[in-house]
């Protein structure tokens, strides 16, 4: 699941209070719906960009599920995360093709460049690092995805240049156009 957490240009920064109000609305709607837990967690993750403890507690109370059950469900599905996501999500493909053609080295380079482990977010909240299994671009391995953009045949030496483009606020559209052209 892709999560859009960054406010788009022109939108005001959403406050936490607003996010919780939104969550309460959702919970109101799902209060008596059987099997509501997973959909509610997905919506909550979309609202917050991740699943903060306080939101999970609110969900647990509203749906009458114990906190341990809610936590168990969150931990079972890999698409849920309880750590805040950075503005950009980097996913390194570790499918077989990418792995043997340098994906492993790309990942190592990213870990040391960003000083984060897989699943973590940089201190400045710009990047989160994650891994994936096959983005369907094996012929162009190794592949990384940053948000919705696919970067192909990536070599460790190029990484700084790629990341730099995402650091500039608002620069994302430009990157996206560029990435698309690369693919063409």
């Amino acid at each position: 699941m892709t999560v859009e957490s960054a406010p788009c240009a022109g939108c005001h920064e959403v406050t936490d209070a607003e996010r919780f109000a939104q969550l309460d609305d959702v919970l109101q709607q799902y209060r008596d719906v059987p099997g509501a837990l997973i959909p509610v967690l997905q919506i909550a993750q979309a609202i917050f960009g991740y699943l903060p403890d306080a939101a999970l507690r609110r969900i647990s109370t509203a749906l009458g599920k114990s906190f341990s059950e809610v936590a168990g469900v969150v931990g079972f599905y890999s698409f849920f995360t309880t750590v805040p996501r950075g503005r950009h999500l980097i996913r390194v493909c570790l499918g077989t093709a990418c792995y043997v053609r340098g994906g492993k080295d790309v990942l190592a380079a990213l870990r040391s460049a960003l000083r984060v482990e897989v699943g973590e977010t940089t201190a400045d909240q710009t990047f989160s690092l994650d891994v994936g299994r096959c983005f369907g671009a094996c012929g162009l391995a190794p592949v990384i995805m940053i948000d919705d953009d696919v970067h192909e045949r990536v070599r460790p030496g190029q990484l700084m240049g790629i990341l730099e483009k995402y650091r500039v606020p608002g620069a994302r559209d430009a990157v996206r156009r560029e990435a698309r052209q690369e693919t063409v």
């Binding site: 599920k65 114990s66 341990s68 059950e69 936590a71 168990g72 931990g75 079972f76």
Partner: peptide
């Protein structure tokens, strides 16, 4: 419901 399977 204090105990539940955590993780996978």
């Amino acid at each position: 419901g204090a105990l539940w399977a955590q993780g996978r």
